[in-house]
Design a protein around this nucleic acid. Structure first.
Lengths: 339, 339
DNA sequence: CTGAAAGCGCTTACAG
DNA sequence: CTGAAAGCGCTTACAG
């Protein structure tokens, strides 16, 4: 049996209530009593039982972190550990713990989120992704669960706290840059199209084209679904068109390098024949051949701010939803070249 | 206020005790009563409160996952998400949740682990790393906390459940392979030297040399500490020796590619001038130039088995410690060449 | 087969 | 300033 508050009370010759107050550092307890009690706690090696404490406090001091349990290449990137590091820093500061979803399918994740929030295992939730028609988000919203989203939510942005890059602007900036290099046939190899981040970047891409009066070519857009485990074929098809693109924007550095390898198989050189830009600024991207032009999306800050936002909601149920835009910066390296 | 067992009891016209038994699917409750109660639960949208349930059960149904909160390049690799995926699968199967450490410094992590185990926030712990003189491991061992380690523990291996590759054997195999290609001047660029995985691999390296009667050259060993943020200089120094190595074994694929980029800066080509082998079989390593020979260490399985092992300990305090060896396989690609 | 009661380890009005 | 009592939401012997 573990040491309880009663054991401490007995040794310190006070009531359990007093021990409890000492733990909470209640101002009205005599310094002398506090000393006595703390001595007893140390002597017995007392640690408060979270379950009991949280049961009466009606909170858990934990945040649920919900991720897509996907295995795609994009998820091999350092996004996850890095965003978690940001979340950790904020949570740790506020003495909150992190509770991770373990489910694999969407339905299971949904059930897990319902159980962890209803069962008071967590006080709030961070959604590490944002996609269309997400029933998990709908549930959180409908049930007044404090939560925040990494990414712009598909619905009711005014009612939801979220952190995001300005994906439309940064994608436009990337494409503008390529256009300024003389490219007009620019391909967009994006993530899953039901993710908001993908559709936002596609919007930015189209805006840039429109402004430059370059017609939009649907054949230049390759979605995750289109690749569907057949990445190489998809790239092959893209490049075998009558008018192949001279530049490619991809949604992730690792994907960019994968694409580059397929291009090499087709005897297409980067950047000589095709320019390419990635996203996420992977640590390796400056070391590899070619050094990759990419977008630094401030992953750490995305996590940090997402945690700050849920915490804000948890601490004040009436806190107005806020959204935070975290900088995204185009880093030019040698994978792009003017035409 | 959330729906409690009492509300369900009232609606179903039974006692709270009965509702509790229905939740536990107690065999002695009439099917008719069960039906009635379940109907009431559905109608009210009842979810059991974990805190209360765990308080009386004296368990938490959660596993603490403790990681080094390091930011080094090696931790940018997919090890973390992948090992977590393995852990998740096992934990989810047993209906356990995952609780993550959020601390940054060793001392803070220690305190966090003590608090989460003593405070019954978790029933057991998985240590995602194994290093020398680890007070966290000492604490877990001394206090009878159920735990498992990813990696061979520095002490009392017979008393501890752990998963590991046979790092000595696989490192030896890698070096044997290089020797069979005619290399004799082989460098070892390892991780932090207080990590068991590093020292084990170094042992395997030395064994292979010894068997081939190649003298051990201390200058060929570059530790994490030696690099200390000055990776490029360290590699420079390594290659500027009177007799530079013709082959390099690194502890991680990303590090390998970083090294390759420094070699290129020195006008040393891989594999023409120097052969190189990595570890961890990063998804990208088959796509990059050169495709990297590497060791697949079955990261997913490391996580899966580590979770199985803690769970075993949690479910049976007297379960004998076990250790599981997970396969490590050398994958030959184009980054090695015979001399 | 089901209920009343005690208890898990804490906190917090309410007294004094 | 401190204690006795009630209660957080559940489970589980103990009766019947």
């Amino acid at each position: 049996m573990a040491i309880t508050i009663k054991d401490v009370a007995r040794l310190a010759e006070v009531s359990p209530a007093t021990v409890s107050r000492v733990i909470a550092d209640h101002p009205k307890i005599t310094p002398k009593t506090k000393r006595k009690v703390r001595l007893a706690m140390d002597e017995l090696g007392y640690y408060p039982n979270f379950q009991a404490r949280n049961l009466v406090a009606q909170k858990s001091k934990a945040i649920g972190v919900v991720m897509e349990n996907s295995t795609t290449l994009a998820f091999q990137n350092p996004f996850f550990p890095e965003v978690l590091r940001g979340i950790s820093v904020s949570a740790h500061q506020s003495q909150y713990g992190l509770y991770l979803s373990t489910s694999a399918t969407e339905q299971e994740i949904y059930e897990e989120v319902v159980a962890m929030t209803q069962g008071k295992r967590v006080d709030g939730v961070i959604l590490l992704y944002s996609k269309m028609d997400d029933k998990i988000l709908d549930y959180l919203l409908a049930n007044g669960v404090p939560f925040s989203v990494v990414g712009r939510p598909y619905t009711r942005p005014d009612a939801i706290s979220y952190v995001d890059n300005d994906n439309i602007a940064i994608a436009k900036e990337v494409v503008d840059h390529l256009i300024s290099l003389g490219h007009r046939d620019i391909s967009f190899v994006g993530g899953a199209s039901d993710f908001i981040v993908s559709s936002d970047r596609l919007s930015g891409y189209r805006q840039a084209l429109a402004e430059a009066e370059i017609p939009f070519t649907p054949e230049y857009v390759v979605t995750q679904e289109a690749m569907e485990g057949q990445e190489q074929q998809a790239i092959c098809k893209l490049m075998k068109q009558k008018k192949p693109p001279t530049a490619i924007v991809t949604h992730d550095d690792l994907v960019a390098y994968e694409v580059i390898s397929y291009l090499e198989d087709l005897n297409i050189a980067v950047p000589a024949d095709v320019s390419i830009v990635g996203f996420n600024n992977h640590t390796l991207s400056s070391h590899l051949k070619p050094p990759l032009s990419t977008v630094d999306i401030s992953i750490f800050d995305l996590g940090l701010e997402a945690a700050n936002l849920v915490l804000e909601k948890i601490n004040d149920g009436n806190a107005a939803p806020r959204n935070i835009v975290v900088p995204a910066t185009l880093i030019e390296r040698a994978s792009c070249q003017s035409l």
